[in-house]
């Protein structure tokens, strides 16, 4: 089912939050964009919900939006997005709780702890998600594209 409106009416409210005016003309001062497939299809299917989590609109295709709306939407999403992409794996080693990873991501270097083997999930097509101790997601979009050393380290453990 397509959303009836051609594109949702999104604005930035005075306090900097995302605002939305629905088809009936009712204005919602603070709404949240939520990616519906954050790991497998992050750039499509974005839901606009109110603070209680009620869906107000659903956007299938971000690229189809007018530039200003898209810009606002992507900015708001960027504030909430946090799925660092692992670029280099320096070390993975056994620690007290599972494995300690030492990596460089697109958001800088960090260390984190992965408790179980179950926390490293292959989503198919070389797309791997690593969930750390605190439930933060890290992504390796394409295992094959990782440098050989990193891949070796990864494969030794998983």
């Amino acid at each position: 089912m397509k959303t009836p409106a051609a594109h949702p009416d999104l604005q930035r409210s005075s306090v900097g939050a995302l605002a939305y005016t629905d088809v009936t003309g009712k204005r919602h001062d603070k709404v949240l964009p939520v990616r519906l497939f954050p790991l497998t299809d992050p750039n499509r299917w974005i839901s606009i919900t109110d603070l209680q989590g009620q869906e107000l609109a659903c956007i299938e295709e971000v690229d189809g939006l007018p530039d200003d709306v898209r810009k606002i939407l992507l900015e708001t999403l960027a504030e909430r997005d946090f799925v660092p992409v692992i670029q280099v794996i320096h070390t993975i080693r056994h620690a007290e709780l599972g494995c300690e990873w030492c990596v460089t991501t697109d958001r800088g270097q960090t260390r984190f702890c992965v408790e179980n083997d179950e926390s490293v999930e292959a989503l198919g097509g070389g797309n791997v998600v690593v969930i750390d101790q605190h439930n933060t997601r890290y992504r390796i979009p394409d295992l094959a594209a990782l440098d050989a050393k990193s891949r070796q380290k990864f494969e030794r453990y998983y």
Binding site: R93, H94, A95, E96, L97, E100, R111
Partner: peptide, 10 residues
């Protein structure tokens, strides 16, 4: 993290 590293040498 220092504890973690120490304890990892089990």
């Amino acid at each position: 993290f220092s504890d973690l590293v120490r304890d990892s040498q089990r």
